[in-house]
Design a binder for these strands. Structure first.
Lengths: 243, 243
DNA sequence: CGTCACATTGATATTTGTCAAGGCCCGTGG
DNA sequence: CCACGGGCCTTGACAAATATCAATGTGACG
């Protein structure tokens, strides 16, 4: 057990209420009393820099995390294989670690894509708190259920779709997630590399690069390195439909 | 609200305790008291025949289901597309509907692959029961978390793997699931069509057929229609590894 | 016995992966 | 300040895997 420094905490101030993500976060529906108790258990680890692991595959499972700023990729390294598989990206307000609940060890690593801050929820304390606050339980269940639906969406992207359809669906998904969190729907940074996107979509990184170029030439998007501008949501959406 | 007939129920007998799946089921960890309460809310709808829908995409979400016998596929029909995407298969003891929790409507259809029996858990009553029994809540969370891990496994299968690796992984996954439920790990029925398998794995049905033939010629499996025998678990596992 | 859904098999076309070369950006160190 | 190096991205040529189209086979069931 290491003692984790708690920067930015002023006595008497509740983290969550002041947090700009509060309305998008799992804490959204909590009563004042639950919020205060939540504040008691929440930890604020040091920020992680690009490439640092928040969670290492195989480590004991101890905590859930909520992304405050920045972003992460979740990667699985499989026995007998050298390359890693990117299974998820996490954006601010999203919960990390739900798939480890009920397990003793973490089934995947979670790595920062840029300098990122998280809130840490030691699971044991979190669980105890959830026993007493039905609203917290409900939010947790809804988060998990939402993630299951996200996975179904991803299956639809991966299965039987062309490279263009996958990339269009991926960009639209990101756009929507940013939008829901109060950022622009049309303009955002791709914190992940082309290789990460490729792994996530089941494409070679070269294919990702080529299709992005094609989209740009078609006037659907503008890309400059990692900065993305969507110029035609409708155009991208149309790609997902059958001919 | 239709009144659902309750066949096979004798007064004073608890469904779950007598059920052969009890040890694999969500009810496994329930105390005697919780089990009795569970018995109160559980419904046993008529069996579904092959092709009948247990859940229709877009319908209001009202219940979770536990598969008792038989099997189901979960399919998503997407806007602007005619073909359906198979996102899941459900075997006995598995929970159906977790991805709809917190939603008003069902995001996917669930269709019987053969004559199948389920237990129905009206969600409102189930939730009320879960408020009072922590063991039930825990089991529900573990079920959802397990499904999230299953999805990650599926991502690894779908992404950047050859047709052979996908099919090998799929068959091994089925084998393991049957095994955990007390059936043979080496011999089972493929209740789903080649087209369903193809949809689930992102392959054309012809490819599924060809790869199965190849596996058979290599002595890895024996297939006769829908009956499958695994002759070399190790051989199938080896396919999943890098060269 | 015929029909229908499903499965197999073959020939061909297309997509995408692989390999290879070169460019760009950024941080580091001379 | 500039040159260098490394990581990442782009682009091209080619090869391989898989989809598609089409024909035929098979088994279940009325």
């Amino acid at each position: 057990m290491t003692t984790i420094p708690q920067p930015y905490r002023r006595p008497g101030e509740l983290y969550c209420q002041g947090c700009s993500l509060h309305s998008a976060c799992m804490t959204r529906a909590l009563s004042q009393g639950a919020l205060e108790a939540f504040d008691e258990i929440i930890q604020q680890p040091q920020p992680l820099k690009r490439g640092q692991a928040l969670v290492q595959q195989g480590q004991p499972f101890r905590s859930l995390y909520l992304v405050r700023t920045g972003s992460f990729k979740q990667v699985v390294r499989q026995a007998g294989r050298q390359d890693e598989q990117v299974v998820h990206f996490f954006l601010p307000s999203e919960a990390v670690g739900l798939e480890a609940i009920g397990e003793t060890h973490c089934p995947a690593s979670v790595v920062a894509l840029e300098t990122s801050f998280v809130c840490e929820l030691p699971f044991e304390a979190f669980e105890a708190l959830a026993q007493r606050h039905e609203s917290l339980r409900g939010e947790l269940m809804r988060s998990m259920s939402r993630e299951l639906r996200g996975d179904q969406r991803q299956f639809c992207l991966l299965s039987g779709r062309t490279a263009e359809q996958r990339l269009a669906g991926f960009l639209l998904g990101l756009s929507q997630r940013f939008h829901l969190r109060g950022y622009s729907r049309y303009r955002f940074q791709l914190a992940m590399s082309r290789a990460d996107i490729g792994s996530h979509l089941g494409l070679a990184l070269e294919t990702v690069s080529r299709v992005m170029g094609r989209f740009q030439r078609q006037g659907l998007i503008r890309v400059a390195g990692r900065e993305l501008t969507i110029r035609s949501l409708e155009g991208l959406e149309a790609l997902g439909e059958d001919p």
